[in-house]
Design a protein around this nucleic acid. Structure first.
Length: 439
RNA sequence: GGAGAGAUGGCCGAGUGGUCGAAGGCGCUCCCCUGCUAAGGGAGUAUAGGCUCAAAAGCUUAUCGAGGGUUCGAAUCCCUCUCUCUCCGCCA
């Protein structure tokens, strides 16, 4: 959420900045609401103050045994009048809130301007794509020929965009997650966290998925709820649990409604979780293979930091994610997203793209964002600064990495002519010291 | 699933209609005293808003799990919900 003070003070400037990322802010509507708000709020508070003082006087008078009828008469009509103002104010506030809740974050000044992913900037590249001396296969073919990727069974069980892994590939998948967790906890100083995979709507509002992106989520309902009243549609969505689309949601919300002493900063969390995304609106995109699934595993990194440190932390975060690819010896490049391609909550985002030989291109495997105070403001995540004052924290998140896509990269980059997969040296200890996955 | 208890400030905990944003204690900050330490004395110590405003400051509103209601007035009474705990049952 943007700072409403900033919107009041420099509305036009903010609107221009939002336009740069392709968002048209309802300037006139906001201005009108603000004008009304100011008048109504002042009036409401004056009436409340009056009610409070007179009520207090009544109390005092009663204790002394004095007559109170005069005072009672004085505020006889105040109640109804006040109620009206309060209702009006509440309505205006909620309309302002609605606008704020769907307004994306402002792009940081270092973010390149642009409309879509074509304007993203490559800032560095690591590793050389391997040259193959045989006809390469994509990960689907490799996995199916090994008998270890079974999309047919998956679709029988759950439909499109699910997968079943078996044997060596299932193990490799597990090994990857374990390797990532170990690296981040032992070498990068993260605290490993286990979190719920079902979260309430407040959490999703806190990180910015709700209210705007409800269609991208899966909603879970307990069987008891369905049975008790199957026709009740009134409370749909609210109070229901959602499957997490990323561990960013539970991890970041750990500090919601909290005031952290500044000595404890920065907090660095890592969690390995499944992620669930409805992928509405991506019909026909990446329909083959593991690239785009309704359920996938991810190792997520979250930083909770002092506002002056957040851009420094972003560089660290990207570096931590890159380390995984370097240790796996997978070639990649780092992109800085342009203003138009960034996610809702981000002020600045780096994407890491891994080389996929079968697609002959780099594909996103990690997205690292500094959300500045945008999420913290939504979830009231604060810290007590050096002067004892409370201040909003800055939050960052990044994949470290998407496990499913890392597996894809591994299968394709480490494939051999005979259809087997070489196991990268850093993974061997998680794979019973095997050298290869083969039939 | 059955029975019961509870939710108050950083923490503990009092408060069952009126000068209560909230006693008392702990913790923390500052000061005093004490040749160290311990003990003691004093002052301060929630959060989010709004208005005036360059700022400092002042004034003001809301908040005692959440929402609604009664009342001139609600932490306190009524209703609904959520969560936590205890016992029993069931269960990975």
């Amino acid at each position: 959420m943007l700072d409403i003070q900033q919107l009041r003070n420099e509305l036009d400037l903010v609107a221009v900045k939002l336009a740069k990322r392709g968002y048209e802010f309802p300037v006139e509507q906001f201005r009108a609401l603000e004008q009304k708000r100011k008048v109504i709020q002042t009036e409401t508070q004056e009436l409340q103050a009056k009610r409070n003082t007179v009520s207090k006087q009544i109390g005092i008078a009663k204790q002394k045994g004095e007559a109170v009828t005069a005072m009672m008469a004085e505020i006889a009509n105040l109640g109804d009048n006040l109620k009206q103002f309060e209702n009006q104010l509440e309505q205006i506030q909620s309309e302002l809130q609605k606008i704020l809740l769907v307004t994306p974050n402002l792009a940081h000044e270092s973010v390149p301007e642009g409309k879509d992913d074509k304007n993203n900037l490559e800032i560095r590249r690591w590793g050389e794509p391997r040259v193959f001396d045989f006809e390469i296969k994509d990960h689907v073919t490799i996995g199916e020929q090994l008998g270890m990727l079974d999309f047919e069974t998956a679709s029988k069980l759950s439909g499109a965009r699910f997968n079943v892994m078996k044997g060596g590939i299932a193990c490799l998948h597990r090994a990857l997650a374990q390797f990532m967790l170990d690296t981040h906890t032992l070498e990068h100083g993260y605290t490993e966290i286990y979190v719920p995979y079902l979260v309430n709507a407040d959490c999703l509002r806190g990180t910015g998925q709700l209210p705007k992106f409800a269609q991208d989520l899966f909603v879970a309902q307990s069987g008891a709820e369905i049975k008790s009243d199957p026709t009740d549609l009134v409370d749909q969505g609210v109070g229901k649990l959602h499957l997490i689309p990323t561990a960013e949601v539970p991890l970041t919300n750990m500090v919601s409604d909290k005031i952290i002493p500044y000595e404890q900063l920065p907090l660095k969390f890592v969690a390995h979780t499944p992620c669930f995304r409805s992928e509405a609106g991506s019909y026909g995109k990446d329909t083959r293979g593991l690239i785009r699934q309704h359920q996938f595993d991810k190792v997520e990194l979250v930083h909770i930091v002092h506002p002056l440190r957040s851009f420094e932390a972003l560089e660290q975060l990207v570096h931590h994610a890159e380390t995984i690819l370097q240790k796996l010896e997978l070639p990649y490049r780092v992109m800085v997203l342009c203003s138009g391609d960034m996610g809702f909550s981000a002020a600045k985002t780096y994407d890491i793209e891994v080389w996929l030989p079968a697609q002959n291109t780099y594909r996103e495997i990690s997205s690292c964002s500094n959300c500045e105070a945008f999420q913290a403001r939504r979830m009231q995540a604060r810290f007590r600064n050096e002067n004892g004052k409370t201040e909003l924290l800055h939050t960052l998140n990044g994949s470290g990495l998407a496990v499913g896509r890392t597996l894809v990269a591994l299968l394709e980059n480490y494939q051999n002519a005979d259809g087997s997969i070489t196991i990268p040296s850093v993974l061997k200890k998680y794979m019973n010291n095997l050298d290869r996955v083969s039939i």
